[in-house]
Amino acid sequence: MTKPTLLITGATSGIGKAAAKALAPTYRLILCGRRKAVLDELKRELSSLTEVHTLTFDVRDKQAVFAAIDSLPNEWSRIDALLNNAGNAHGLAPIQDGSVEDWDAMMDGNVKGLLYVSKPIIEKMKNQGSGHIINIGSIAGKEVYPNGNVYCASKFAVDALTQGMRMDLNPFGIKVTAIHPGLVETDFSLVRFKGDAERAASVYKGYKALQAEDIAETIRFVLSAPAHVVLSDIVILPTAQASATIVKKTL
């Protein structure tokens, strides 16, 4: 029996990469990202577990997204599940000091990129009469925190889009899930702080943050639910975190 097919964006690092490894025994994988060399290496690593196809594109590039998905061979044209994971935070500044370039990067990647990838895949799922879309949001899509303004806005948008998708796609038998992690120890902060490794590391000191593998396990659990069950909205935090701004640290 052929495995179902899962497409993962942002598969070259963090949650996307961990999800690829966790789901390889169960799914055929279409791994998407900007770094072809990393995708190729991940494909080699997982090829003993499952079939892997890679697509290299930036989710912010609408034409590249559509062309890449349109290029899928016939044997990869059916997509049973989509993990919209690509996205990032850029900068941490009060609104009056924010960088327009950072704002564009976050809105283009976290919101428009999710839409660009989802559109052609939704069409496939409609025709199939089934499918599962998982959007990776954030605790920042549930609570605004100081200096998080535009990043929070982008993740609030992900939350709203997920709810809207669930309503609009209900007639077609398509499940829609949002997973909203709190503090996850990945390259997230390194990107946010423009490569400042010391500042990025300080975010995760004094407590045990979530790991990418924890979110991957949550994704695996969501996808394993029976056909009549959808886990629609999940907030997952490390034990040390009570909210976007409350973290128990022992420094």
Rank of each mutant, 00 (worst) to 15 (best):
V230P: 12
E75W: 02
T218F: 12
I246E: 14
L223A: 11
A19L: 02
L210N: 07
F221N: 02
E123T: 00
K43D: 08
A225N: 12
N74G: 12
A240C: 09
A11M: 05
Q241S: 03
A160V: 10
Y27W: 11
G98T: 09
A227V: 13
A20F: 06
N135T: 00
K3W: 04
V111S: 07
L31T: 05
S154R: 10
R220S: 13
A86W: 06
V52D: 08
D40R: 05
E101T: 12
K112L: 03
G141H: 01
N84L: 14
D40L: 11
D196H: 13
A178I: 15
N88T: 11
A201H: 08
S202K: 14
L161K: 03
E185S: 07
T12Q: 06
T54H: 06
M106L: 12
K142R: 15
D159R: 14
L55Y: 13
L42C: 03
F172P: 05
Q63H: 13
A201Y: 01
L183Q: 15
D196N: 15
A160N: 11
T177S: 15
Q63E: 15
K124H: 09
I122W: 01
F66K: 10
L23V: 02
F57L: 08
K3C: 00
W76Q: 07
P171T: 09
R220P: 04
G164H: 05
I136L: 00
R166Y: 04
I139T: 04
K249N: 03
